[in-house]
Design a protein around this nucleic acid. Sequence first.
DNA 1: CATAGCGGGTTTTTT
DNA 2: ACCCGCTATG
Length: 737
Amino acid sequence: MILSHPLLDDLNSEQQQAVSIAGGPVMVVAGAGSGKTRVLTHRIAYLIQEMGVRPDAILAITFTNKAAREMRDRVGELLGATVNNMWVSTFHSACARILRREAHVFGYRSNFSIYDRSDSVRLVKHCLNDLGLDASRLSPRGLLNKISGAKNDLVDYETFLDRAEGPMEVAEVYKLYQQRLLQMSAMDFDDLLMVTVELFGAVPEVLAKYQHIFRHVLVDEYQDTNRAQYLLVRDLARKHRSLFVVGDSDQSIYAFRGADYRNFDRFDDDFPESRRVTLNRNYRSTSTILDAANEVISANLRADPKDLWCDQGEGERITVHQGHGSVREAQFVARRAKKLVAQGYNPADMAVFYRTNAQSRAFEEALRRAKLPYQVVGAVAFYQRGEVKDVVAYLQVVSNPDDGVALRRIINTPRRGIGRTSLGHIERYVSDQEVSLREALEVADDIPGISTRARKGVKELADVLGRIRGHLESEGVGRAAESAIFDTRIAEMATAAGGIEAEARSDNLAELSRVAYEFESSLEADLPPMERLGRFLEGASLVSDPDNLDEGAGAVALMTVHSAKGLEFPVVFVVGMQDGLFPHERSISDPDELEEERRLFYVAITRSMERLHLSWDDTRMVGGYPYPQVPSRFLREIPDRLVEKVGGPAFQPGSNASTASAGLATSGGAVRPFRGIVRQSGFEVGDRVRHPDWGLGRVLTISGRGMRASATVFFPDLKERRELMLSVVERVSGFGP
DNA sequence: CATAGCGGGTTTTTT
DNA sequence: ACCCGCTATG
């Protein structure tokens, strides 16, 4: 049945059904390219226009801030008016906003700081130090991952302690870390979610209040919600039961940060009256691309077959290119891109996806040489750059003087004579007197052992912070940022170091100042200065990589496959298609993780509309040494009829044997041990091994630790690679330079 | 107190 | 190859 209605006219019947369902919980299972964004925007417009819902009763969760902006605009266009007071944001932004108002219940101040990954790592290091634990033995990063994992599962440190999983040290660190965060009025990314859920659990009135406000909740990319996010949604929607979620479990790619596609099943349990609509018509890709995607994903035991179909025609075959060295792989991409531009494509129609950020360099270089404009999304993000973080840290301290991480960052940046010795005395005072760093600095003159120079430095710091605050209060955020750039002499410092970098640093600072002024003008006029600054800092903390993709830039986009989620491009290059890279070696030994890698590849493929180019490189540099590479197992999952092979004489369809030995031959004696792996397993890539049944073989990749290391080994006699535990093979000497 | 130089560890993906 | 923290030196 096709309904006739302005909001429904250009939708297919399944989309119409989803958009116009009367009420109650709805789950839309939306295959790749099936128009889920359309459905969401139309649904919101429909709620407002047809069901008389007030925009401020709607909470819509998107995966990026950019998607939120676009959704808001799109709804506005559909309704022919700008929509105000509708909450369209990411989980993290929405939680931050709620917590600004409510977190005082738990003792956080409303101006709490939001810590990114690197801030959190710093804090963990401090905690390790103060607990007298050895940071080189317990990696701060690793600890943070454990803490983060616990938080995503809503396990607080007390519960963590009770359960006493693993060594007590982790629990100790977790506890201190969390106490410090609270003392400093700071939250990490995971806290934003966890504390909100805890708040709803602990204070029923607060939950009731937000249930009342958000009578209608919509969630995009539902397959990537973690436990905290799931509970948040469930709690909010429990009362009015108007919950509309859209997702595709085959595109679930964030398990490493707690995402759980089983939230699909839980949805049915918690909302048994829910209705389900499946969208399986693809509007994005050619049938060639779609067939490849369907084949690849069907290799997953846990695939959720949606029988995607389309009528966009066959289009071009998928090219698979073998490069020889990353330079040539990148050259291939650049040349092909150039050719397509000559054929009428815009550089902005094209994107290069890779598994890891570290791969971007070669492609940047090649595109630069080909004189094609490009933009790298993510990688070393703007707000992560040293000089930018410094300025932001000053502003952060102005906003929240208890923010010890920010304060430690700027205390002697630029140098003002507060060196290790003085800082040591101050830190001792902090722990002895149990005061905050801010309080210690206020009485620095009375702390023994501090040099005159350092005392002066502390005073200078206080002065400059005062100045920034003054500018903020009289002239606003833009001027405050400028003050934090120039009055602190960070601008001077940025130029002074010289080199090509100097210019880039100055540009970054100029950009930061511009962004601050621009942000300022987007705020309501009656907001007090401190609150304006808080909003600015919050925005800076919560920008995501894809947020700064500029479609209007006319440039080829370079990004990780993760960042590419939700995007589409006429031409897509997926590069680095090698076993050990994609799928990543860390995932190969675990079937679940391997399936996640395959979903990731599925996401990559399904971004492309017209042309898909896959490429792999038969050598790879790790730590300065070349390593032989074999093509990704995923390439073999694409039927030959869809593929055209380009380049690489060694490439033989369906066989990795020739390429593996070719890779070894070309790198020859240059294959060297990767030190870290040697220490862990005693084996090296390139080692010859003997297996009781399969004979002699050569180690291609190693993953895992100690005696439990596993490897992919190529056995010439079998003409194939096998995965095995290294402990079951015997090493054979005689290989090497 | 600042800086240069060295040794050790290291990257998967991200809000 | 790169980043970080430690140490020796100015």
